[in-house]
Nucleic acid binder design. Structure first.
Lengths: 152, 152
DNA sequence: ACTCATGAAACATATAAAGTTACATGAGGC
DNA sequence: GCCTCATGTAACTTTATATGTTTCATGAGT
């Protein structure tokens, strides 16, 4: 099954924006992500509604971070995307009349719920600021501004 | 994203087979699952290879359980399906050159691994026999043979 | 007025699960 | 031996959805 990579993508965008003041146009960000500007606008729309980013039109417009990175978790970003389903497997029928199916669903649902809860919990433990910190470690001595160099 | 319901489906099939001796034709099972015989054969193929079920051609042929239900877990069944990916979300790129992407992947991968491990672990705790027991509870006073009645 | 940016709708593409058709293979029953 | 019934398998169709693309409207700045 094809995996939804919007969370991965939007995090990438946010981390690219973090060290510089901005604003960044959708086109700039799209180049960095090797995708289309419209895709950027699409995945950023949810974040704008929750106030994590701002967007402005016209000359000098684009996207700007509008939140405290140490207050926003990966789970928040996930929620901003509309909380798409986390699991690739699921029940055949959601409210079956068949008792067999009910028994199967009950067993699977329990496992599914646990796994989803754990995943959400883990995502809730990581803030964007922490991600940025990890990034700086990976950069080592290099200037933070070089992050985007390879996207030129 | 469309969810893979093969595990749910094959468990349904196995539970339907459990209380009766069989063999069951793909067509019978397909009717019970409201699907196509070829779909049944497809999802049963993996289980046959692992020896959980047997299949026989010709008159009086069909599918027969060939394992100790108390020894086979939902995880085993999942593995018999080829261990399809469990998560609906994932990283944009698996082995990125971009340091930003690496940082994002590292954070997400950890959460993904934990959730997958927990889900597999939960599936490993439930045997087919336990599922059958739960089903009998749901059936209450009714005869086990009535399970399939509504599929007629 | 012109340019640059987002906003949004509409359409195209890619991928994978699920459903379907068609036919080959082999196991009884006659 | 031939016929019927069942699985085995390949090929194709359908459906859902993430992703990509085109197009145009809207509004901000020069």
């Amino acid at each position: 099954m094809r995996r939804d990579s919007r969370l991965s993508g939007v995090l990438h965008v946010l981390l690219h924006m973090a060290p510089q003041p901005g604003p960044f146009t959708s086109e700039t960000l799209a180049k960095a992500m090797d995708t289309n500007p419209v895709v950027i606008r699409r995945i950023m729309a949810g974040l704008r509604e929750l106030g994590y980013v701002r967007s402005e039109k016209g000359h000098g417009g684009g996207w700007t971070l509008a939140c405290d990175l140490s207050k926003v978790t990966l789970r928040d970003v996930y929620a901003a995307l509309g909380s798409p389903s986390l699991l690739a497997i699921g029940n055949r029928t959601e409210a079956p009349g068949c008792l067999v199916e009910q028994a199967v669903n009950a067993a699977l649902d329990q496992a599914f719920r646990d796994a989803e809860a754990l995943l959400l919990s883990r995502l809730g433990e990581v803030t964007l600021a922490m991600l940025g910190g990890d990034l700086r470690k990976r950069l080592g001595s290099r200037n933070v501004r070089d992050i985007n160099a390879h996207h030129a």
